[in-house]
Amino acid sequence: MLGKLEEEDVEKLLKEQYIGRLGCHDEGMSYIVPINYVYNNDIVYAHSAPGKKIRMMRSNPKVCFQADQIRDTFNWKSVVCWGKFEEITDISEKQNVLQGIIHRMMPLTNTPSEQPSHGTGKTDAHDDEIIVFKIVLNLKTGRFEVNDRSN
């Protein structure tokens, strides 16, 4: 059975997942990349090293975000959202967001004692190059498929 997720199910999925896909578009080119994220109150928080997605979002801040939960081919939930990229420059807010990402991601790693990638570690020499950003969502939709025989 295919269906539409209710608003509370959309919110639950966005809060539970920690990897999503960010879609940007600029100068006739679309670009989709996976990102680690934290979600709270219609805002997706994330970080990145400088690169293509940051250049594209600075040029065109209108983005798309997708997260899903897939059990198998016929049992899944997917949420697609649209919003606006905003770079976080306030040092205190930037540190709070990075701490939130660290607390969300570290329990999920196989070797939590190792340094996280690009900039979430306290001793990373390139911390000043880390871009912390938020996607302020203005539209969310969700779909699901459930195979009734598997329940």
Rank of each mutant, 00 (worst) to 15 (best):
P112V: 06
V33P: 01
F85I: 09
S48G: 08
T73R: 09
N75V: 12
D72C: 11
S30C: 10
L108K: 14
L137W: 03
G142Y: 01
K140W: 01
L22H: 05
S30D: 06
Y45R: 05
E8T: 13
V38C: 07
L137I: 05
V97E: 02
L108Y: 12
S117P: 10
N41P: 03
I130R: 06
S30T: 15
P112E: 12
V132L: 09
E114P: 00
F74E: 05
E8F: 10
G51E: 07
A46M: 10
V33Y: 00
I32H: 12
V10S: 04
E93W: 01
D90G: 06
D26W: 12
G23I: 06
G83N: 05
S30V: 15
D9L: 04
S59I: 07
Q99T: 15
K52F: 00
E129K: 15
I91N: 08
I43Q: 07
D90S: 09
W76L: 10
V132P: 03
R21I: 06
Y45S: 07
K53P: 02
E6V: 09
V38P: 01
W82G: 13
D127M: 14
D128W: 10
T120Y: 03
R149K: 15
E8N: 13
L98D: 06
D26L: 13
Q99Y: 09
L22D: 04
C64Q: 04
H103P: 05
T120H: 04
W82N: 12
K134Y: 02
K77Y: 02
S92Y: 08
H118K: 15
K62T: 11
F144L: 10
C64R: 04
C81K: 02
M57W: 03
G28I: 08
H103Q: 13
K12I: 05
S48E: 06
R21T: 07
D124P: 01
E114Q: 10
Y31F: 04
N75E: 10
I19E: 13
S92I: 14
D124Q: 04
E8A: 11
S113P: 00
I43K: 14
Q69L: 14
M56V: 07
M57I: 04
E16F: 00
R143N: 07
V136P: 00
S150L: 11
T120M: 14
P61Q: 14
E86N: 07
L139E: 14
E93P: 02
A46K: 03
K15D: 12
I131Y: 03
